[in-house]
Design a protein around this nucleic acid. Sequence first.
DNA 1: GCCTGTGTTTGCAGCGCTGTAACGTCCCTG
DNA 2: CAGGGACGTTACAGCGCTGCAAACACAGGC
Lengths: 341, 341
Amino acid sequence: MTTADRRGTSGHVRLVDVAALAGVSMKTVSNVVRGAPHVSAAMRARVQKAVEELGYRPNLTARRLVTGRTGMLALALPEMDQPYYAELARHVAQAAPELGYRVLIEQTLLDAEAEHAVIRDRETGVVDGVLFHPVRMSNDEIARLRPELPLVLLGEDAPATTDHVMIDNVAAARDVIAYLVASGRRRVAFLGTVVDETSQATKPRLRGFHEGLDAAGVPAADRPVLMCAAYSVEAAEAALEAALAAGTRIDAVMCREDRFAVGALRALHRAGQRVPEDVAVVGWDDTQPARWASPQLTSVAPDKRELARVALRLVHERVTGHQGPGRHLIVPHTLAVRDSS
Amino acid sequence: MTTADRRGTSGHVRLVDVAALAGVSMKTVSNVVRGAPHVSAAMRARVQKAVEELGYRPNLTARRLVTGRTGMLALALPEMDQPYYAELARHVAQAAPELGYRVLIEQTLLDAEAEHAVIRDRETGVVDGVLFHPVRMSNDEIARLRPELPLVLLGEDAPATTDHVMIDNVAAARDVIAYLVASGRRRVAFLGTVVDETSQATKPRLRGFHEGLDAAGVPAADRPVLMCAAYSVEAAEAALEAALAAGTRIDAVMCREDRFAVGALRALHRAGQRVPEDVAVVGWDDTQPARWASPQLTSVAPDKRELARVALRLVHERVTGHQGPGRHLIVPHTLAVRDSS
DNA sequence: GCCTGTGTTTGCAGCGCTGTAACGTCCCTG
DNA sequence: CAGGGACGTTACAGCGCTGCAAACACAGGC
């Protein structure tokens, strides 16, 4: 009887089957399989042999039921095909195994109900903890959650009670301005605020923009803040195009995200302005497609890898029992300078 | 005692707690919670009330252990931050709930061991079935898997024994050529093959390219096939640049993927060729960033939504007991015509 | 040779839930 | 008014595994 036959017959192999073949107790097999200490080398070898002969694979569901741990974390994001989120997800999925986790990616699609469902997931024992980038749930709602839920927030805003990781948006925006001013730009536009703002990210970036220009002594009149109709390339393009058509004169555009910067590139191209000679463009998030644009985009680059690692460390600590008030961690950023500035 | 208190005290609420409060058997609560038939309206209301009062949430791990179903599917992809995969993942994650599944995305990072691990996952009962886009595992290896594994392959090649969904690459390539020829292009380059080819997708696309040009009566000498050093924008750019520098004259480039098309755009720009006036460029996959390029890319558009739905339907059928030989399904594609052609 | 201590192995209960089968209970029919 | 069927509810075993505590083996020290 071959291994395949045996498995084919029984449907699946259980701990008890291995124990019977090896002539030991179930518990010893369990110890060997889990790599527990206090197992003699001879015993380990003997059990290992039986395991291989039968092609035994532990049933993780049963293990989970008794240990109460699933070894899974949820990563809840608005849209997984947005480059920033996709890249973040990649880093999280890549780093999670180091702490013994696997990642279940949850797409909330900007829907409040979906965001609530993420929290319920934890309650039904599907995952041990949650990394959550909220866009609809308010700080209040999040703070009201049971504090013992292992939860780490990503993104720009969070209640004091909850763990939280982000980059320093205000400082990053100031850095952009400092860089632009140093390279001789004086009339910088902010692209942009959004009509129906769902993100908390715009505010601090806009603040840094103003602080930076204040510091450089640029008068408020020389810093147009453009508003987009939506979070899209087209909306940003339209916003800048309208401003240019109205006679707004600028020599740089600082964008709240790479998508807007792509729109800016298009609008400037259509208006006959050269980038970077006439106008510099700076994006935000340093996503891959930003490097595909022409000219390649200069962009604020959050350290996504570090963001992922820090967030994972925080949930892991919560999962393994850390109590205490919310921790708010800042992760480094740089300015990836490319052809557009 | 409030709900929160109660939960805080007990740690968590179990079926038996609800049963005690409602004064019924555990099984009846189970029936109500699962929405099983044969429960009187009065009973349902009574139990519901107890459920809410205690804030009961079923423990899915326990449910899984007894039913043997997890309600989860794995989606195994090479890299989730590649736009094509990210978009595909989004569609799969979006459509899966309709069939009662949630999706665990597995990133294989082009690693053979990671691809094998995907299969093991199923064996450990983490997921009920697998949607798999392989790049390293050979057809032979896949065919050797136990046939009762609910598995659907995505991508361009698959053994006859396994379910499989793709677009008709040869036909799509012919469509591209027919379109280019109809718009007056006669010297079309293929960009490109890759030195260390890991994908089965190039071959049929190249075949369609040749078939299309044969049909149009274009001599073989007028259809350069360029080879890239890697799967990257830069490699594609370099390949086309070298060809142009060597005096290759073309009026169109058909690319095996959007990334290569972006590289082509750059190389042509640097060489002073206008797109689409001098040279038309056509990409493949119709990814979002292709729409961000300038000029916006014309691209072969697989119906990703349908691809996701069909693949889900096939695994679902396998999970629910469908036996039988491998099914090979073709999903529609279109040519998304934009500014680059 | 007995006892202690260290290290290894075992037996058993039970994680929380659902499937099966048995058990009412009520109403309809002859 | 007895018998049968349909529906609602209950009791209990057991999914496959691990934690706990007890049992055991085998050193070395007295």
